[in-house]
């Protein structure tokens, strides 16, 4: 499913050692910082042209904050994000404009991501009119082809969002994201709000579009099965850090980090006869306000050693150079 352009190109987006700390304040008037939430704490990954990079993890692991930094909603506290080799921090206003039209987003909930007062056609055309300065007629032509591309009828452009079902709304959101022919689309849980029979439709649509346009995806998801179906590369996040990263097949056939193993073991089987290696994690995710010393996972890890509570492991390549894991066991 990789396109011709995907072969051995350099990354279109590089996130390098990115951190995002949020201050925790107390007091109403004189807000005193009493601590920091390390939402993202040194994350590095690269998105290649025409490929899907997925970030998986449970709630609070920082995957959405990472996506927000890529979308320029949040500025990193430290580290850099590079778009085609150029650091976002050095951007001028023209660069921002170009970046914003080349990086688009599709969100989880199509009930809140579409303006209920705008007709669907207008929602999809708006980026064309403001960014591309197309004339109305040109934009309308483009609208027709976009609607067709996401599997909607042309006349449906005159409808309002409430007249559509969840799956159709997500198609509208995808059409809008596609309208500027972006290089990258950030997909934040794109199918988790949809019904089971509709999810497959949307996932297939996203994959077809990738094949046709060579667009890259940054997929944020918590469902491992979705991730396995959609992505080329996967990064597993835990408490603000990537703990394991590998090509999709490698990660699922040879998971190394105890947390990845536990996640796969906790994912529900596809058949009643499948027996998994039982790794029940005790306890819950620690608060990012007060992360444990050493490896953040050690209080829940069944293989924790003395060293794990002392020293923070670093992400380093395993035997397979494409497979990186951050654990003292390796």
């Amino acid at each position: 499913m990789t396109t011709a352009i995907a072969a051995a190109t350099e990354p279109i987006i590089s996130v390098e050692n990115c951190q995002k700390y949020f201050p925790v304040t107390s007091g109403l008037v004189l807000r005193k910082a009493i601590g920091q939430v390390k939402a993202v704490d040194g994350v590095t990954f690269h998105i290649k042209q025409g490929e899907t990079y997925s970030l998986v993890g449970e709630s609070g692991c920082g995957k959405t904050t990472t996506a927000k930094m890529v979308l320029l909603v949040e500025r990193p506290t430290a580290g850099s994000i590079k778009f085609r080799g150029k650091d976002l921090a050095t951007f001028r206003s023209d660069d921002y404009k170009e970046y914003r039209s080349s990086v688009q987003a599709v969100f989880q909930d199509p009930w809140s991501s579409l303006n209920p007062r705008m007709r669907v056609g207008h929602i999809i055309m708006e980026p064309l009119l403001t960014n591309k300065k197309l004339s109305r007629n040109e934009a309308k032509e483009r609208l027709a082809s976009l609607l067709q591309e996401v599997g909607l009828h042309q006349f449906q452009g005159d409808y309002y969002p409430h007249e559509f079902s969840g799956g159709q709304r997500q198609r509208i959101a995808i059409a809008r994201a596609l309208s500027l022919e972006p290089n990258v689309i950030v997909l934040d849980e794109p199918v988790s709000a949809l019904d089971v029979s509709i999810r497959a439709q949307i996932m297939n649509l996203l994959r077809d579009l990738q094949e046709r346009h060579g667009v890259s995806y940054l997929l944020i998801a918590h469902n491992l099965a979705t991730v396995r179906y959609m992505s080329h590369h996967v990064g597993v996040m835990y408490l603000g850090k990537i703990v394991e990263e590998a090509p999709t097949r490698e990660l699922f056939t040879n998971p190394m980090h105890p947390y990845t193993k536990a996640l796969i073991s906790a994912s529900l089987p596809s058949h009643p006869d499948i027996q998994r290696e039982d790794i029940v994690l005790s306890g819950e995710i620690p608060s990012p306000l007060n992360p444990p010393k050493g490896c953040a996972f050690h209080p829940r890890c069944p293989f924790a050693m003395d060293r794990c509570s002392q020293e923070m492991p670093v992400l380093k390549a395993a035997q397979n150079p494409e497979h990186a894991v951050s654990c003292h066991l390796f």
Partner: peptide, 17 residues
């Protein structure tokens, strides 16, 4: 339904709603 246990090449999608 996508599967964690094996690689699926193409998911079957039920048309319509």
């Amino acid at each position: 339904v996508p599967n964690v246990d094996e690689e699926v090449d193409h998911l079957y999608a039920i048309e319509g709603q």
